[in-house]
């Protein structure tokens, strides 16, 4: 990255004192930027595209607009500061935002919460935060709300399975269940679509920022509730259904307090099945990116071997839902 060009674009009142690439982000690159603005130090993050982008991922300009909309709705997000759509400055479009304190680590959160038998307050805080996400006005580029979010979800998953070219009978079985036993629908809202503990910054037990808005879209609010509580995001703490940090009840109570309506656990568990299917499709897609030769990566290759566990999980959840014991 050309620091001088970046500094010139940021303006003469801003000096970059330090910059370092942050870990994580298979699709986006994040850089920690230490700057001075009119001589006063500030901590920023610069977010830009990696060499390989995903077609289903929003552009930086769209993500910047979402951060502004979310902030206006009272979601705890990093303050978006400047957007640059000119790819000539650092090689790809980017934006800068204020750097939130703390860490976003699903593993560490789950480990800490499990040691004390679950963190009810933190689980409820995540529920409240998600309710604020769902209050955010969806920007115009997200198009019109789907009439039937579950039907749209099923169609999207089938299309992506077909595009990957390998039959997935276990996922088909689970999708067919969702098609024949659809949960009661809710009015579509802005869904984050990757709201999990690994994308929520925590400092001193408090949420400091909801990260990674690149998959946001219209959807049923249960979709995010199911994604957050799906087994694949519990990091080994299966009994703590809400992201490995707390109980489903504590999480949903926090959500209800802020949203003004009470989600039903059975409906959330139906959407946990949807989450498991979607993660399996994403994982299979990551292996396909590796296998295409365009993006050889051991991490992507190994992600492909997570698919059987997710398929096995999807069958088990479908069985529990069919039996009414979920």
């Amino acid at each position: 990255m050309d620091k001088a060009r970046l500094e010139a674009w940021l303006g003469q009142h801003i000096c970059i004192t330090d910059m370092a690439r942050l870990s994580g982000g298979a699709i986006q690159q994040n850089w920690a930027l230490d700057v001075t603005r009119n001589g006063a130090p500030e901590a920023w993050v610069l977010r830009t595209d990696n060499a390989a982008t995903l077609p289903e991922s929003l552009t930086r300009a769209q993500e910047f607009a979402l951060l502004q909309a979310a902030r206006a709705a009272g979601v705890t997000v990093a303050e978006p500061l400047m957007l640059c759509e000119d790819a000539a400055i650092i090689g790809a479009p980017f934006f800068v935002m204020r750097r939130a304190a703390g860490h976003a680590s699903g593993h560490a959160n789950a480990k800490r919460a499990a040691a004390v038998g679950g963190d009810a307050a933190l689980a409820a805080a995540h529920g409240r935060e998600l309710a604020r996400v769902h209050r955010t006005a969806p920007p115009a580029f997200l198009g019109a709300a789907p009439a039937a979010p579950m039907a749209a979800f099923i169609a999207e998953m089938r299309a992506r399975i077909d595009a990957l070219g390998r039959p997935r009978p276990q996922l088909e079985w689970a999708l067919r269940f969702l098609e024949t036993q659809p949960p009661p629908p809710r009015q579509p809202v802005l869904c984050h679509r990757d709201f999990r503990t690994g994308n929520v910054m925590i400092a001193d037990g408090r949420i400091t920022a909801v990260l990674d808005w690149e998959f946001a879209a219209w959807g049923d609010p249960h979709e995010d509730l199911g994604w957050f509580t799906a087994r694949c995001w519990r990091f080994g703490q299966d009994a703590l259904e809400a992201g490995g940090i707390g109980s489903l009840d504590d999480f949903l109570a926090g959500y209800a307090a802020e949203a003004g309506w009470q989600p039903q656990p059975f409906t959330v568990r139906i959407w946990q099945l949807a989450a498991t299917i979607r993660w399996a499709v994403i994982a299979a897609g990551q292996a396909a990116r590796h296998l295409s030769g365009r993006e050889p990566s051991l991490e992507l290759a190994l992600t492909g071997h997570m698919v059987p566990e997710l398929e096995f999980d999807a069958l088990n959840i479908t069985e529990r839902l069919r039996a009414g014991t979920a």
Partner: peptide
């Protein structure tokens, strides 16, 4: 059909991640 799906998923899981 469900039994066949379970057997297939179990066989592939035994290779990809037997701990699960």
């Amino acid at each position: 059909a469900l039994a066949m799906l379970r057997a297939d998923a179990r066989a592939r899981l035994a290779i990809s991640n037997p701990r699960a």
